[in-house]
Design a protein around this nucleic acid. Structure first.
Lengths: 140, 140
DNA sequence: TTACCTGTTGCGACTTTTCGCAATAAACAA
DNA sequence: TTGTTTATTGCGAAAAGTCGCAACAGGTAA
Protein backbone atom coordinates (compact mmCIF):
# COMPACT_ATOMS: atom_id res chain seq x y z
CA UNK A 1 0.00 0.00 0.00
CA UNK A 2 1.11 3.53 -0.66
CA UNK A 3 0.29 6.72 1.19
CA UNK A 4 -0.03 10.39 0.39
CA UNK A 5 2.95 11.83 2.19
CA UNK A 6 2.20 15.46 1.46
CA UNK A 7 -1.36 15.19 2.70
CA UNK A 8 -0.34 13.44 5.92
CA UNK A 9 2.41 15.96 6.62
CA UNK A 10 -0.02 18.80 6.13
CA UNK A 11 -2.47 17.19 8.51
CA UNK A 12 0.18 16.76 11.21
CA UNK A 13 1.55 20.30 10.93
CA UNK A 14 -1.92 21.75 10.99
CA UNK A 15 -2.54 20.00 14.30
CA UNK A 16 0.66 21.48 15.73
CA UNK A 17 2.81 18.36 15.44
CA UNK A 18 6.10 18.04 13.64
CA UNK A 19 7.13 16.04 10.66
CA UNK A 20 10.41 14.35 11.49
CA UNK A 21 12.60 11.98 9.49
CA UNK A 22 11.93 9.31 12.11
CA UNK A 23 8.17 9.57 11.66
CA UNK A 24 8.48 9.41 7.92
CA UNK A 25 10.78 6.40 8.04
CA UNK A 26 8.49 4.53 10.39
CA UNK A 27 5.40 5.31 8.35
CA UNK A 28 7.16 4.19 5.17
CA UNK A 29 8.17 0.99 6.90
CA UNK A 30 4.62 0.09 7.95
CA UNK A 31 3.48 0.95 4.46
CA UNK A 32 6.03 -1.31 2.81
CA UNK A 33 5.79 -4.19 5.25
CA UNK A 34 2.07 -4.59 4.57
CA UNK A 35 -0.66 -5.71 6.96
CA UNK A 36 -0.18 -6.71 10.57
CA UNK A 37 3.24 -5.20 11.04
CA UNK A 38 4.81 -5.73 14.45
CA UNK A 39 6.82 -3.03 16.23
CA UNK A 40 9.83 -5.32 16.13
CA UNK A 41 9.57 -5.69 12.36
CA UNK A 42 9.39 -1.92 12.01
CA UNK A 43 12.41 -1.52 14.24
CA UNK A 44 14.46 -4.04 12.28
CA UNK A 45 13.54 -2.29 9.06
CA UNK A 46 14.25 1.30 10.06
CA UNK A 47 17.25 0.42 12.16
CA UNK A 48 19.05 -0.74 9.05
CA UNK A 49 18.52 2.67 7.46
CA UNK A 50 18.94 4.79 10.58
CA UNK A 51 20.97 2.90 13.19
CA UNK A 52 20.51 5.51 15.91
CA UNK A 53 16.72 5.45 15.70
CA UNK A 54 15.77 3.92 19.01
CA UNK A 55 13.24 1.27 19.96
CA UNK A 56 11.45 3.73 22.22
CA UNK A 57 10.90 6.04 19.28
CA UNK A 58 9.42 3.23 17.22
CA UNK A 59 6.87 2.48 19.91
CA UNK A 60 6.11 6.13 20.53
CA UNK A 61 5.66 6.95 16.86
CA UNK A 62 3.46 3.92 16.19
CA UNK A 63 1.29 4.95 19.11
CA UNK A 64 1.24 8.54 17.96
CA UNK A 65 0.34 7.76 14.35
CA UNK A 66 -2.47 5.56 15.63
CA UNK A 67 -3.88 8.41 17.68
CA UNK A 68 -3.77 10.55 14.55
CA UNK A 69 -5.72 7.81 12.76
CA UNK A 70 -2.98 7.44 10.19
CA UNK A 71 -2.27 3.93 11.40
CA UNK A 72 -4.63 1.37 12.89
CA UNK A 73 -3.75 -0.94 15.74
CA UNK A 74 -4.72 -4.58 15.35
CA UNK A 75 -4.61 -7.35 17.88
CA UNK A 76 -3.23 -10.70 16.79
CA UNK A 77 -4.08 -14.21 18.00
CA UNK A 78 -1.28 -14.33 20.51
CA UNK A 79 -2.50 -11.09 22.06
CA UNK A 80 0.32 -9.07 20.57
CA UNK A 81 -0.20 -5.77 18.88
CA UNK A 82 0.47 -4.98 15.23
CA UNK A 83 -0.16 -2.00 12.99
CA UNK A 84 -1.27 -1.23 9.48
CA UNK A 85 -2.20 1.77 7.38
CA UNK A 86 -5.63 3.06 8.35
CA UNK A 87 -7.74 3.25 5.22
CA UNK A 88 -10.46 5.87 4.82
CA UNK A 89 -13.11 3.27 5.63
CA UNK A 90 -12.47 1.14 8.72
CA UNK A 91 -12.40 -2.58 8.25
CA UNK A 92 -12.25 -5.54 10.58
CA UNK A 93 -10.72 -8.96 10.70
CA UNK A 94 -11.79 -12.50 11.34
CA UNK A 95 -8.65 -14.13 12.70
CA UNK A 96 -8.32 -17.90 12.83
CA UNK A 97 -6.81 -19.10 16.11
CA UNK A 98 -5.63 -22.33 14.53
CA UNK A 99 -3.86 -21.26 11.37
CA UNK A 100 -3.37 -17.52 12.00
CA UNK A 101 -4.93 -16.63 8.67
CA UNK A 102 -7.28 -13.68 8.54
CA UNK A 103 -10.14 -12.35 6.45
CA UNK A 104 -11.25 -8.80 6.03
CA UNK A 105 -14.75 -7.80 7.02
CA UNK A 106 -16.35 -4.71 5.54
CA UNK A 107 -17.29 -2.03 8.01
CA UNK A 108 -20.96 -2.56 7.26
CA UNK A 109 -21.14 -5.73 9.33
CA UNK A 110 -20.72 -3.70 12.49
CA UNK A 111 -22.98 -0.83 11.60
CA UNK A 112 -26.16 -2.21 13.09
CA UNK A 113 -24.35 -3.46 16.15
CA UNK A 114 -22.90 -0.04 16.68
CA UNK A 115 -26.26 1.63 16.38
CA UNK A 116 -27.72 -0.80 18.89
CA UNK A 117 -25.05 0.05 21.47
CA UNK A 118 -25.70 3.71 20.96
CA UNK A 119 -29.45 3.35 21.35
CA UNK A 120 -29.45 0.93 24.28
CA UNK A 121 -26.45 2.07 26.31
CA UNK A 122 -25.73 5.56 25.01
CA UNK A 123 -22.24 4.24 24.36
CA UNK A 124 -20.35 5.45 21.30
CA UNK A 125 -18.43 2.51 19.91
CA UNK A 126 -14.98 3.14 18.55
CA UNK A 127 -14.85 0.79 15.61
CA UNK A 128 -11.70 1.97 13.87
CA UNK A 129 -10.58 -1.61 13.93
CA UNK A 130 -11.91 -4.72 15.61
CA UNK A 131 -10.49 -8.23 15.47
CA UNK A 132 -12.70 -11.23 16.04
CA UNK A 133 -11.15 -14.58 16.82
CA UNK A 134 -12.35 -18.04 15.98
CA UNK A 135 -11.88 -20.85 13.53
CA UNK A 136 -11.96 -20.68 9.77
CA UNK A 137 -13.55 -23.16 7.36
CA UNK A 138 -10.42 -25.18 6.76
CA UNK A 139 -9.56 -25.59 10.42
CA UNK A 140 -12.96 -26.76 11.64
CA UNK B 1 -16.60 -15.20 42.78
CA UNK B 2 -16.09 -18.77 43.79
CA UNK B 3 -15.24 -21.82 41.73
CA UNK B 4 -15.83 -25.52 41.91
CA UNK B 5 -12.35 -26.82 42.61
CA UNK B 6 -13.21 -30.50 42.46
CA UNK B 7 -14.93 -30.18 39.12
CA UNK B 8 -12.08 -28.21 37.58
CA UNK B 9 -9.47 -30.64 38.88
CA UNK B 10 -11.40 -33.55 37.43
CA UNK B 11 -11.62 -31.78 34.07
CA UNK B 12 -7.86 -31.15 33.98
CA UNK B 13 -6.86 -34.67 34.96
CA UNK B 14 -9.25 -36.15 32.47
CA UNK B 15 -7.50 -34.18 29.72
CA UNK B 16 -4.12 -35.51 30.84
CA UNK B 17 -2.95 -32.43 32.70
CA UNK B 18 -1.83 -32.21 36.28
CA UNK B 19 -3.27 -30.39 39.23
CA UNK B 20 -0.44 -28.63 40.98
CA UNK B 21 -0.38 -26.38 44.06
CA UNK B 22 0.80 -23.55 41.81
CA UNK B 23 -2.19 -23.85 39.52
CA UNK B 24 -4.57 -23.95 42.44
CA UNK B 25 -2.99 -20.93 44.08
CA UNK B 26 -3.12 -18.91 40.88
CA UNK B 27 -6.70 -19.86 40.18
CA UNK B 28 -7.70 -18.94 43.73
CA UNK B 29 -5.95 -15.62 43.34
CA UNK B 30 -7.82 -14.67 40.16
CA UNK B 31 -11.02 -15.78 41.83
CA UNK B 32 -10.45 -13.61 44.89
CA UNK B 33 -9.08 -10.58 43.09
CA UNK B 34 -12.25 -10.25 41.00
CA UNK B 35 -12.61 -8.95 37.44
CA UNK B 36 -9.81 -7.72 35.23
CA UNK B 37 -6.95 -9.20 37.20
CA UNK B 38 -3.48 -8.44 35.87
CA UNK B 39 -0.65 -10.98 35.88
CA UNK B 40 1.31 -8.69 38.17
CA UNK B 41 -1.53 -8.59 40.71
CA UNK B 42 -1.69 -12.38 40.65
CA UNK B 43 2.05 -12.60 41.14
CA UNK B 44 2.01 -10.21 44.08
CA UNK B 45 -0.79 -12.17 45.67
CA UNK B 46 0.59 -15.69 45.28
CA UNK B 47 4.17 -14.65 45.91
CA UNK B 48 3.26 -13.72 49.45
CA UNK B 49 1.94 -17.22 50.05
CA UNK B 50 4.53 -19.12 48.00
CA UNK B 51 7.70 -17.03 47.64
CA UNK B 52 9.39 -19.43 45.23
CA UNK B 53 6.53 -19.41 42.76
CA UNK B 54 8.05 -17.66 39.78
CA UNK B 55 6.75 -14.99 37.44
CA UNK B 56 7.17 -17.30 34.49
CA UNK B 57 4.84 -19.81 36.13
CA UNK B 58 2.20 -17.15 36.69
CA UNK B 59 2.20 -16.23 33.01
CA UNK B 60 2.28 -19.84 31.88
CA UNK B 61 -0.55 -20.91 34.16
CA UNK B 62 -2.76 -17.95 33.25
CA UNK B 63 -2.25 -18.78 29.61
CA UNK B 64 -2.89 -22.45 30.24
CA UNK B 65 -6.08 -21.92 32.24
CA UNK B 66 -7.33 -19.66 29.47
CA UNK B 67 -6.78 -22.38 26.89
CA UNK B 68 -8.74 -24.73 29.14
CA UNK B 69 -11.53 -22.14 29.20
CA UNK B 70 -11.35 -21.90 32.97
CA UNK B 71 -10.19 -18.32 32.74
CA UNK B 72 -11.01 -15.68 30.14
CA UNK B 73 -8.53 -13.20 28.78
CA UNK B 74 -9.67 -9.59 28.54
CA UNK B 75 -7.98 -6.70 26.86
CA UNK B 76 -7.90 -3.39 28.70
CA UNK B 77 -7.87 0.14 27.32
CA UNK B 78 -4.12 0.48 27.54
CA UNK B 79 -3.75 -2.69 25.50
CA UNK B 80 -2.63 -4.76 28.45
CA UNK B 81 -4.02 -8.15 29.19
CA UNK B 82 -6.02 -9.16 32.25
CA UNK B 83 -7.87 -12.29 33.31
CA UNK B 84 -11.05 -13.28 35.06
CA UNK B 85 -13.02 -16.42 35.79
CA UNK B 86 -14.78 -17.68 32.68
CA UNK B 87 -18.41 -18.04 33.62
CA UNK B 88 -20.63 -20.67 32.04
CA UNK B 89 -22.26 -17.96 29.91
CA UNK B 90 -19.83 -15.69 28.08
CA UNK B 91 -20.21 -11.98 28.58
CA UNK B 92 -18.65 -8.94 27.00
CA UNK B 93 -17.58 -5.48 27.94
CA UNK B 94 -18.04 -1.96 26.72
CA UNK B 95 -14.88 -0.23 27.86
CA UNK B 96 -14.67 3.56 27.99
CA UNK B 97 -11.38 4.85 26.63
CA UNK B 98 -11.69 8.08 28.59
CA UNK B 99 -12.56 6.98 32.11
CA UNK B 100 -11.65 3.28 32.02
CA UNK B 101 -15.02 2.28 33.36
CA UNK B 102 -16.71 -0.74 31.86
CA UNK B 103 -20.18 -2.17 31.43
CA UNK B 104 -21.12 -5.78 30.99
CA UNK B 105 -22.98 -6.82 27.90
CA UNK B 106 -25.10 -9.95 27.89
CA UNK B 107 -24.03 -12.61 25.46
CA UNK B 108 -27.23 -12.18 23.51
CA UNK B 109 -26.03 -8.97 21.86
CA UNK B 110 -23.52 -10.97 19.84
CA UNK B 111 -25.69 -13.92 18.99
CA UNK B 112 -27.03 -12.65 15.71
CA UNK B 113 -23.65 -11.30 14.70
CA UNK B 114 -22.12 -14.67 15.36
CA UNK B 115 -24.74 -16.45 13.31
CA UNK B 116 -24.17 -14.05 10.43
CA UNK B 117 -20.42 -14.75 10.39
CA UNK B 118 -21.13 -18.44 10.39
CA UNK B 119 -23.61 -18.21 7.54
CA UNK B 120 -21.66 -15.78 5.36
CA UNK B 121 -18.06 -16.78 5.96
CA UNK B 122 -18.32 -20.27 7.46
CA UNK B 123 -16.28 -18.84 10.30
CA UNK B 124 -16.95 -20.02 13.84
CA UNK B 125 -16.60 -17.01 16.13
CA UNK B 126 -14.99 -17.54 19.49
CA UNK B 127 -16.98 -15.25 21.71
CA UNK B 128 -15.75 -16.36 25.12
CA UNK B 129 -14.98 -12.76 25.76
CA UNK B 130 -14.93 -9.67 23.59
CA UNK B 131 -14.14 -6.11 24.63
CA UNK B 132 -15.46 -3.15 22.68
CA UNK B 133 -13.89 0.23 23.15
CA UNK B 134 -15.47 3.63 22.91
CA UNK B 135 -16.89 6.41 25.02
CA UNK B 136 -19.53 6.17 27.70
CA UNK B 137 -22.41 8.56 28.35
CA UNK B 138 -20.61 10.65 30.94
CA UNK B 139 -17.51 11.16 28.86
CA UNK B 140 -19.20 12.26 25.64
C1' DT C 1 18.92 33.83 7.44
C1' DT C 2 18.67 33.84 12.35
C1' DA C 3 16.91 32.87 16.66
C1' DC C 4 13.35 31.33 19.60
C1' DC C 5 10.00 28.04 21.29
C1' DT C 6 8.70 23.71 22.35
C1' DG C 7 7.63 19.14 20.31
C1' DT C 8 10.52 15.06 19.67
C1' DT C 9 14.32 12.02 20.05
C1' DG C 10 18.03 9.08 22.12
C1' DC C 11 19.79 7.23 25.97
C1' DG C 12 19.87 4.30 29.85
C1' DA C 13 17.35 2.24 33.33
C1' DC C 14 13.44 -0.17 34.47
C1' DT C 15 9.23 -3.11 34.10
C1' DT C 16 6.82 -6.71 31.86
C1' DT C 17 6.73 -10.98 29.35
C1' DT C 18 8.88 -14.95 27.18
C1' DC C 19 12.19 -18.88 26.59
C1' DG C 20 15.28 -23.01 27.21
C1' DC C 21 16.66 -26.37 30.12
C1' DA C 22 17.68 -29.11 34.13
C1' DA C 23 15.34 -30.48 38.34
C1' DT C 24 11.03 -31.63 40.39
C1' DA C 25 6.91 -33.91 41.46
C1' DA C 26 1.89 -35.34 39.91
C1' DA C 27 -0.50 -39.44 38.26
C1' DC C 28 -0.85 -44.07 37.78
C1' DA C 29 0.19 -48.91 37.71
C1' DA C 30 2.27 -52.80 39.93
C1' DT D 1 4.12 -48.17 49.07
C1' DT D 2 7.37 -47.82 45.39
C1' DG D 3 8.91 -46.89 40.86
C1' DT D 4 8.23 -44.94 36.28
C1' DT D 5 6.76 -41.59 33.12
C1' DT D 6 6.54 -37.15 31.62
C1' DA D 7 3.99 -32.71 32.56
C1' DT D 8 5.32 -28.79 35.09
C1' DT D 9 8.19 -25.70 37.67
C1' DG D 10 12.11 -22.50 38.88
C1' DC D 11 15.90 -20.25 37.44
C1' DG D 12 18.60 -17.13 34.86
C1' DA D 13 18.88 -14.75 30.73
C1' DA D 14 16.86 -12.55 26.94
C1' DA D 15 13.25 -10.15 24.54
C1' DA D 16 9.58 -6.77 24.39
C1' DG D 17 7.79 -2.53 25.87
C1' DT D 18 7.81 1.84 28.92
C1' DC D 19 9.58 5.98 31.27
C1' DG D 20 12.12 10.34 32.62
C1' DC D 21 15.08 13.63 31.25
C1' DA D 22 18.59 16.29 28.91
C1' DA D 23 19.89 17.30 24.19
C1' DC D 24 18.25 18.14 19.71
C1' DA D 25 15.90 20.02 15.80
C1' DG D 26 11.28 21.23 13.23
C1' DG D 27 8.33 25.23 12.54
C1' DT D 28 7.61 29.94 12.51
C1' DA D 29 8.16 34.73 12.64
C1' DA D 30 11.15 38.66 12.36
Amino acid sequence: MSHNTAEINRQLRKAGFRVTPQRQLILDAVCQLGEHVTPEAVYDHVHRIAPTLSRATVYRVLHFLTEQRILAMVQMVDGRIAYEMAGPEPHHHLVCRSCDSFFELPHSVLRSFRRAMEAQYDFELDVSHVSFFGQCTDCR
